[in-house]
Design a protein around this nucleic acid. Structure first.
Lengths: 113, 113
DNA sequence: CAGTATCCTTTAGGATACTG
DNA sequence: CAGTATCCTAAAGGATACTG
């Protein structure tokens, strides 16, 4: 089947995969906050830091990143509950790539029409 | 107004801006094809190369990139019409950043759960 | 050939109410 | 506090027909 060729081509493209990983509206803000914090941060504090994200979207994106192994989630079985999120070592390896795209944008922002 | 603070924070974040630039479903495939081709390529040939994109989506994304100055469009006023697209010098400067994210994905793909 | 125009479906994401 | 559940709107993108 012809279409499979290019559909696969797109799915197999590492750039496309990377974009899919960080293309959510709140993905970068969340990752960025966890990276620069670099220590456990509670759900509520994280939410306030990247406001005006909704609880639903924050939870969803955190679950995705946790699944990927980019962040960790620690539940303290207290009442009221306490949950801390933290960037993982794998997550930290994103830094150079993220810096690279940030630097491109800083350098070429004025040239972009 | 409180919300402006973080809305602005997101809009001002160069990483977020970069993602917005290349987050369209066909953005990377189009850019990638024009970059590796590195010479003028006709609309139809481009469409076939990144099939199964639709004409509408291809046109829309090409217009966006042209507007940004990342690609150029040259119309030959013939019948039938001939239009050639090509990556610009500005567009070529994306290469290191795109390589950076591609390399991250290649190196960490197996660790990603 | 290189588009537009139109219609349609799917998905992302926001608002709000509720809960262990 | 840290979520779920539900409803809703807007935007992205696909299919198809038409045109200079």
């Amino acid at each position: 089947m012809q279409n499979e060729k290019n559909t696969d081509q797109n799915f197999n493209c590492p750039m496309v995969k990377f974009v899919n990983l960080i293309a959510g509206k709140w993905a970068i803000p969340i990752l960025y906050r966890l990276i620069i914090t670099n220590e456990p941060i509670r759900f509520g504090e994280l939410k306030r830091a990247i406001s005006p994200i909704t609880q639903k979207e924050l939870t969803k994106q955190l679950r995705l990143f946790e699944q990927k192994g980019l962040i960790s989630r620690k539940l303290y079985p207290e009442v009221p509950p306490k949950v801390e999120y933290q960037i993982t070592e794998l997550g930290k390896t994103l830094k150079p790539a993220l810096n690279s795209i940030a630097n491109w944008m800083k350098q070429h922002e004025q040239e972009l029409r």
